[in-house]
C-alpha cells in the first residue's frame, strides 16, 4: 500500500522522521515537543496517492552547482525523489533551558542489507549553509533490514534558527523567513554510490492545534 502513497522506493522506504526538543532526564512523550514529524508505518489503500510537483519549480531552492538537485535528478532514479511541505509546530510549552536536547530521529527499511549514507543539507536562499553526513548499518528485524538514526543532535545553526524564528511576533513573518529556508536529504548506498532517496523539505509554520502537519509530493519532470 505504501508504494505511490509515501516516501520510498522498492529499495528503501522512510518509516519515520522527526525533529524534536526534549527535557533531558525525562524522556517520556509528555516532555517531548515535535517540530516536524512524518510517520509512514500505518499506510493503507485508502490513503490517497501522492500528488506530483515538477522538480524544476524548486531547483533554485536547493544547491544548483555540482551535486545540486538538478544534477541529482538527472542522474536519477526519478522515483526516489520527493518533496515534503512541512507546517512546523513552534508552539512548544517546554522552556528553553540548559539541559534541553534538540534532536532528529529517522528510520528507514529495506529488503536489502546495505550500508547507507545520509546527507542532510540546510540551505538558505538555495545555498548550503551546513551539512551533516551520517552512516548507518542495517539491523535485521521482522524480515526486513532496518536503518535507524536515533536522536542525532541538531546542529547549532538549526537550534539558533529556531530560537530566532520563535522570537518573531507574527506567523506571516516566520513564513517569510521560512520561504528561504530548505533542507535537502540524500540517502545513498555507501558501497555502490547508488542514490536511494532524495527528499527536499520546505516549510511554513503550523496554525493547527493538532501539532506539526505535512504534505508529501513526488518530484517529476514532465
Amino acid at each position: 500500500a505504501w508504494q505511490g502513497r509515501s516516501i520510498g522506493t522498492p529499495k528503501l522506504r522512510l518509516v519515520e522522521f522527526m525533529a524534536f526538543m526534549e527535557q533531558q532526564g525525562e524522556p517520556d512523550a509528555y516532555n517531548k515537543h515535535l517540530y516536524v514529524h512524518i510517520s509512514q508505518s500505518n499506510l493503507s489503500y485508502n490513503d490517497a496517492l501522492l500528488e506530483s510537483v515538477d522538480v524544476r519549480q524548486i531547483y533554485d531552492k536547493f544547491p544548483e552547482k555540482k551535486g545540486g538537485l538538478k544534477e541529482l535528478y538527472e542522474k536519477g532514479p526519478p522515483n526516489a525523489f520527493f518533496l515534503v511541505k512541512f507546517w512546523a509546530d513552534l508552539n512548544t510549552s517546554i522552556q528553553d533551558e540548559p539541559g534541553v536536547f534538540y534532536g532528529v530521529s529517522s528510520q528507514y527499511e529495506s529488503p536489502e542489507n546495505m550500508t547507507i549514507t545520509c546527507s542532510s543539507k540546510v540551505c538558505s536562499f538555495g545555498k548550503q549553509v551546513v551539512e551533516k553526513v551520517e552512516t548507518e548499518y542495517a539491523r535485521f528485524e521482522n524480515g526486513r533490514f532496518l536503518y535507524r538514526i536515533h536522536r542525532s543532535p541538531m546542529c547549532e545553526y538549526l537550534i539558533n534558527f529556531i530560537h530566532k524564528l520563535k522570537q518573531l511576533p507574527e506567523k506571516y513573518m516566520m513564513n517569510s523567513v521560512l520561504e528561504n529556508f530548505t533542507i535537502l536529504q540524500v540517502v545513498t548506498n555507501r558501497d555502490t554510490q547508488e542514490l536511494l532517496l532524495c527528499i527536499a523539505y520546505v516549510f511554513e509554520v503550523s496554525t493547527s492545534e493538532h501539532g506539526a502537519q505535512h504534505h508529501i509530493y513526488r518530484l517529476v519532470k514532465d
Binding site: 514529524h37 510517520s39 500528488e51 506530483s52 510537483v53 515538477d54 519549480q57 524548486i58 533554485d60 531552492k61 511541505k85 507546517w87 538558505s124 536562499f125 538555495g126 545555498k127 520561504e179 528561504n180 520546505v202 511554513e204 503550523s206 496554525t207 493547527s208 493538532h210 501539532g211 506539526a212 502537519q213 505535512h214 504534505h215 509530493y217
Partner: peptide
C-alpha cells in the same frame, strides 16, 4: 542572501501546497 527568487506563491504548485492538513 539572494533576493531574486520567484516567490513560492507564484510557482506552479498543487493547491494542496497551501492547504495545511487539519490533522496528521
Amino acid at each position: 542572501g539572494r533576493q531574486d527568487q520567484v516567490p513560492m506563491r507564484k510557482r506552479q504548485l498543487p493547491a494542496s501546497f497551501w492547504e495545511e492538513p487539519r490533522s496528521s
